Simulated scan of single mutants.
Amino acid sequence: MSLIRKIVHIDMDAFYASVEQRDDPALRGKPVVVAWRGNRSVVCAASYEARKYGVRSAMPAMHAERLCPDAIFIPPDFVRYKAVSRAAREIFKRHTDIIEPLSLDEAYLDVTENKTGLPTATRVAMTIRQQIREELQLTASAGVAPNKFLAKVASDWRKPDGLFVIQPQDVDDFLFPLPVGRIPGVGKVTEAKLKQMRVSTVGDLRAIEMATLQEQFGRYGKRLYDLARGIDESPVVSDRPTKSISAEDTFERDVRLAEMEDLIRRLSEKVWEASRRNSRMARTIVLKLKTREFAILTRSHTPLNPPASCEELTAIALSLRERVDLGPDQLFRLVGVGLSNFRDEEQTPTLFFE
């Protein structure tokens, strides 16, 4: 009989906005929207007071302002948010070394065996939430379950500032009535397609054969089949290798390709600085562009040897503009620079022809 895992998913509540409200008492109890003002800005986070008006992350800031005219807009301070995230990570480390961060504000923890001798995963989650509240003056929601999928669903069940536990023997009772839209990874398109198949709940989904799901959704069909049965064997992976590093910016006004040199240089400097904190070498340089019409295109280059300096990275990023054949009058709203294809230094270089 295999060992039943004990997984905790911690999700900080309205993280960026909560940090702002914590650090400025005048903002507490008020609708706070973390976003730059401007036509192109999007909401990074919204306090629960702002969410009552329908404000959500990733929506255009101007739309958020229309929904909540009294919202207080605060420009994001990611340096401060990262510092708070690191402090939360130190709290996690008191209980387990098996930590998989998903973003600054959420992480999976495998506490099948914990470092503090607490008797249950529920007690571990309760202790972590209490330590976050007392030491960081913030709240976090937690889900406890036998696997990552269920733990993530559980952490959202009693937000904000909640704790929900799914015991192994209760998995079926919990899952059957669950709307399929609550399954992580099921977006609006997949949900609509499932509803066309008369699938509204996880119980409905479980009645569909795997072959049918694979026919409709490809490889994701097998994943849906497993999740409908509460099966998720994916481990909590600590220190997941970096896949890419990037920086991008949206223009206040649309610009031509020839006008981007200064910004590409600044973005290259940001990416190079971030890459120096990684022990692995990136082999591929990527230039990302979004046209005025919202079409996204990328151009990449993998030299025989990785860029050895910021100047070399910048030169390659600038040269990738020559491979954008949309005419000199094409206008763009966004540009980004990235590094990908990370390898350990001792690995044999691979030459890609593009």
Score class of each variant (00 low, 15 high):
N114M: 12
M210L: 12
M260T: 08
M260F: 00
G185E: 10
R51N: 12
T302M: 10
E20Y: 09
E273G: 02
L175P: 04
Q214G: 06
T302D: 10
R94S: 08
S85E: 06
P177S: 01
K193W: 15
Y81R: 06
F164S: 02
G203A: 06
Q130V: 01
R333F: 00
K30P: 03
R5Q: 15
C44T: 12
R40L: 00
A26Y: 07
I285M: 13
L313P: 04
I245F: 11
R343V: 07
A83V: 14
S319A: 15
Q196N: 03
T298I: 02
T250V: 00
R266K: 12
V202C: 14
V237F: 15
D172I: 09
L263E: 00
T250E: 04
P69Q: 04
A154N: 01
L27W: 05
Q347P: 06
R51T: 01
T298H: 12
P75V: 03
R223A: 15
F251E: 04
T314N: 12
V43I: 04
Q216W: 14
V32L: 03
L104E: 08
I74V: 13
L178G: 01
D329E: 15
L178S: 05
I285T: 14
E311I: 03
R5T: 11
A145I: 02
R56W: 05
P349Q: 06
T212S: 11
E345T: 05
V189I: 06
E322W: 08
I74N: 05
L304Y: 10
K82Y: 07
P303Y: 07
F352Y: 11
K188T: 05
R51D: 03
D23N: 15
P160N: 05
L227W: 15
P119T: 00
S141W: 10
F342P: 15
L224I: 01
D239C: 08
K152H: 02
N341Q: 11
D170C: 03
G327A: 10
L178N: 13
V153G: 04
R277H: 12
L150R: 08
K30L: 15
D77L: 05
A17E: 08
I285L: 11
D249A: 14
I74M: 14
P160H: 03
V8H: 06
E311F: 10
L289F: 08
Y81E: 09
M281I: 14
Q131H: 06
L178M: 12
P60L: 02
A45G: 00
L136W: 03
A140G: 00
N305S: 13
S103K: 02
D97I: 00
R333H: 01
R158Y: 04
P179T: 01
E311N: 14
A61E: 11
F217D: 11
T127H: 12
V324E: 09
L289H: 00
I98G: 03
L289A: 10
R321Q: 15
R323F: 11
G338C: 09
S279A: 07
